[in-house]
């Protein structure tokens, strides 16, 4: 397919603010290149809207290279669209066909209120992190990098959990709007390392408490979060969090 010959119909969620009830609006996206990213397609549509004197569609984006986790778009029934292991900026228009109708919604969760259109407030994740997603250290000179030896397997497993970018796709994909994959990744990345083990008990108790207070749903192990995670965080982390929590509660 050559440059600039895709024509698409977009059904996009429009919502003025947190308190207004939103609705869908239909837009035509004309002259779209299959090589554009999904966000670039929105840029083109918005440029057209601005030139016509209409209000553009609000959407979140920052790095556009798959690591910021801002692009909270639920596209045709799936977070970040029809491909696995990617964010919206890594989704290209060649994944769609000319003439397609694409439905774009924001993340739907009580804990992620819509700020405007496709932009949601994910500060509930920040509050969960503030409740325990850290390691306490005394300030001073940086210590020698290798004075605590860590088995390679543990380092790798912790790193895989730490790959979580906090985008909220797990919450968006879950039928219960549960944040267990996110919280478990953050609990795991620290609990697996010697530096994080010291505060592991309090960490898991406090982070789960905050998660519950934010109004996220409960996990029913459907596995949709793992399937939709752009960083392919494993369900093993949820089992690890369950273990940590059970151990911390009973001892």
């Amino acid at each position: 397919m050559s440059h600039g010959n895709m024509n698409l119909t977009l059904k996009v969620w429009k919502q003025k603010n947190k308190n207004e009830r939103g609705r869908f609006e239909t837009y035509q996206a004309k002259g779209i290149s299959p090589d554009m990213s999904f966000l670039e397609m929105f840029d083109v549509v918005n440029e057209g809207l601005i030139n016509e004197g209409k209000e553009p569609i609000a959407f979140d984006h920052d790095c556009r290279e798959g690591i910021c986790g801002m692009c909270s778009m639920y596209i045709n029934g799936r977070p970040h669209g029809p491909k696995e292991g990617i964010t919206t900026c890594q989704l290209h228009m060649r994944s769609f066909k000319d003439g397609d109708t694409i439905v774009v919604e924001p993340w739907r969760s009580a804990a992620f209120p819509v700020i405007k259109d496709l932009v949601v407030d994910r500060s509930s994740f920040d509050r969960i992190m503030a409740a325990g997603g850290f390691v306490s250290v005394n300030t001073g000179n940086a210590k020698d990098a290798n004075n605590i030896l860590i088995p390679k397997d543990d380092a790798d497993t912790a790193f895989n959990a730490a790959a979580c970018i906090g985008c909220g796709a797990c919450v968006a994909a879950c039928k219960n709007a549960s944040a267990m994959l996110f919280v478990s990744a953050k609990v795991s990345q620290l609990a697996l390392l010697p530096q994080g083990k010291i505060e592991a008990k309090n960490r898991v108790l406090n982070m789960v408490k905050q998660m519950d207070e934010e109004g996220f749903g409960n996990c029913t192990n459907t596995g949709a979060c793992e399937a939709e995670c752009p960083k392919e965080i494993s369900l093993e982390n949820i089992a690890r969090m369950n273990r940590e929590y059970l151990g911390a509660s009973l001892t």
Binding site: K11, G22, F24, Y74, N76, G77, V103, E105, R108, S109, A110, A111, K175, N176, A177, S178, G215, F216, G217, N218, T220
Partner: peptide
């Protein structure tokens, strides 16, 4: 509780 966690359902 799970129903309350998603007050607005997805259209798709």
């Amino acid at each position: 509780e799970n129903q309350k966690a998603r007050p607005v359902a997805y259209a798709n």
